[in-house]
Every structure is written in C-alpha cells, then in structure tokens.
Nucleic acid binder design. Sequence first.
RNA 1: GGGCGUGUGGCUGAGCAGCAAAGGCAUCAGACUGUAAAUCUGACGGGUUCUACCCUUCGCAGGUGCAAGUCCUGCCGCGCCCA
Length: 333
Amino acid sequence: MNKLIVILGPTASGKTNLSIKLALSIAEGQRFKKLGIKGVEIISADSRQIYKGMDIGSGKITKKEMRGIPHHLLNVANPKRKFTVAQYQKLALKVIKDIQKRNKLPILVGGTGFYIQSVVDGIIIPEVKPDWKLRKKLEKLSNEELFEKLKKLDPKRAELIDRQNPRRLIRALEIVLTTKKPVPELQRQTSQFSVLQIGIAKSPIELKKLIRKRLLNRLRNQAMINEVKKLHIAGLSWKRLEEFGLEYRFVAQYLSRLQNNRGSSTKSGQNKITYQQMIDKIQIESEHFAKHQMTWFRRHPAPEQVRCGGSKKINWLNNYKKITQTIDNFILK
RNA sequence: GGGCGUGUGGCUGAGCAGCAAAGGCAUCAGACUGUAAAUCUGACGGGUUCUACCCUUCGCAGGUGCAAGUCCUGCCGCGCCCA
C-alpha cells in the first residue's frame, strides 16, 4: 500500500482537529481493518512546529490532544539552527514509507505548502547544502550585481529567476559556484505515492474570526509571551525570533522594547511596539499569511501535474461528511 | 473674544505655483528549485481605441496667475496658547 492522505489549509482552518477526528474514525473503522490497515499515523508539514520549544505560537498539538495517534516531525529541529525543506523532505519521505511498511495509513497534515509539495510532487532539490559563509559574502552585493554574476555563470537560470529577490539569487549562485555547473532544471520524481489531497475550505471572513479567537486564546495567562521569553532565555536572539514571523516576530518586538526601556539607553534600530500594536500586527499578518498560503495552494499542483498525475489535485471541502466520504472512496478504491 | 496653527486619496503622511499628487499602512493580485509564518513582485481616483489619451480630485466658496493642493479673501471644521 502506498496511499497517502494530505490535509492542508490556511492557518487557523482547523487542520489539527480534523486530522485527529479523521485518524480516530479511520483507526476504529472495521472496513479499513478488513483492508489490512492497522492504524493511522500523522506527519506534520509545518515549518514552525518542526522546532522544539515552539508550541503555542505554532499551534502545535499537545500530547493529550493526540489521543494516542502517533505524530511525526514535531520537535525534531533545534530553533537555533535553520531547518530547510530539503531536510524536511528526506525525513518525511522516510517516515511515510516506514508507516506504509507497517501497514498503517499516513496522513500528512500542515500548512507549509512548500513542504507538502516537496513530498507530494517529489521535487528534486539540488544537493547543495547552504553555505552560510558564501551567502554572507554574497549578501553584501546588490541585486544587480548578483544578477549580473548569475547571468554570466548560468544565463539560463538567470532568465527565469526573480532578479529582485536576493535570497533566490544567492541560492542560485551558491549552486553554480559549488557544483561548477548550472542550476539543474526542476524535476519531479514521479508519483511515489497514491495521494489524496484535501483542503479545508474557509471563507476569508471565517478565517479572520478564527485567527482572532485563536490569538486571544494564545495570549491568555501570558502563555505566548512566556514561550517567547523562554526561547530568548534559551539563547535565541530577538533577531532570530523575528525570523520566525507572526507570533514570534511581534512578541519578540514587544519584549525587546520592554527590555530596552528598562535600561537607561534605548538601543536604536530595533523595531519596538506596544502590547496593542503587537496584537494588531499578529492579527493582520496572520490574515496575510492565510492569503499567501491560499495563493500557493491555488497553483499546486501545477496544471501539468494534474494532467499527468490526475489524482493530485486538491479537493476543497468544507464539511466533515463529504471529507469522510472522499477518504472512504480513496481508501476502498 | 484674541493669537498661532491645521484641513490632501480607505487610513497615515509628504507636497517646490506646472502631478493623478512622495512614502508608509490597509486592500487586491502574483512569484517561489535547501531560510517558505521566510524572501520577493505588480496594481491601487475613474474611464477608454491602455507603453497613449480623456475626465474628476487635495474642507467649502470666490479671487490673482498662461498655470493653484501649492498665493490672496471669506466661510466652515479641528488643534494649541492667551482671555
């Protein structure tokens, strides 16, 4: 059996809840047992839940909420270090295959489109590890300089690249400079799995409300604040915390302000905000994030993937019954 | 009542007499080959024959100028100070 179910959707759409509900119902379903499915395991596809210590802000499921369903790829990375898609892809593929080998059904749950794509589409990521020294050097160059450099070394890649995005330019150069070869054309490994993708459909208005509710909940009893404080004390700089975005970014901005105010001289250059500004920022940025996620999902899988694979398109559904029916059809087929 | 100041697009905020009017925010759309909650882009007064043209805008009403958001007068709203 090489079936894989994917549950995806924008932030606050209720992926975690749904996944547990589904997992329990599948695990207990007699019909599935007859097919030899011995259970369900969940793999997270979330670029923040992957890190240890980032729980509340990332909306990580608790042990209790798991209801005995095994979960993978939570807390496997140290937030001090940068974790990347390529690492995720390797881990995820391994775990999924392992689950399948044990005759269990893997459910991939998350909102990080790129991570999901890396396993569903099986994109082949160039085997060039980030070279932070090189990157630091390249970061000093302007976009134009980076682009000219790339154009000279790999005109083909230069043609398609976003010439205003330093991160893309630097990575392309990194590949070219370390392999001495042009950036390989994007390839996908053809279907390793039989995939069913389910997207949780929510209107923007619903989503806004859900985000609001969730945010207030996270802030209750200082929970969110304490988590970020703890991370900072554990050695994560404010700058590093800002990189994580949303809750982590704005709570860090808020906290660093408090810290600076205590000292007589205020350090300049840091973003500093009040508690209310923090709340507003997290809210609005989360809404942006949800939209951003939807833009990604809208074009994944790419049309040519749908054409040849057929099964990879995302089924956008909004009620539980339809979802279970779709899953039944997929599994029993 | 007197003095000073202020009124700009959904908000904020620039604006030299030649601007459909900087920037920021919000909004909308999009990119995405090892940071993806990251990083980056475009549109954003209205209309069309849309690399160009037309129309309507800068509290309101007049005035001066070839030309006014930009100068002058009056009115209205807001702010601070004196009373």
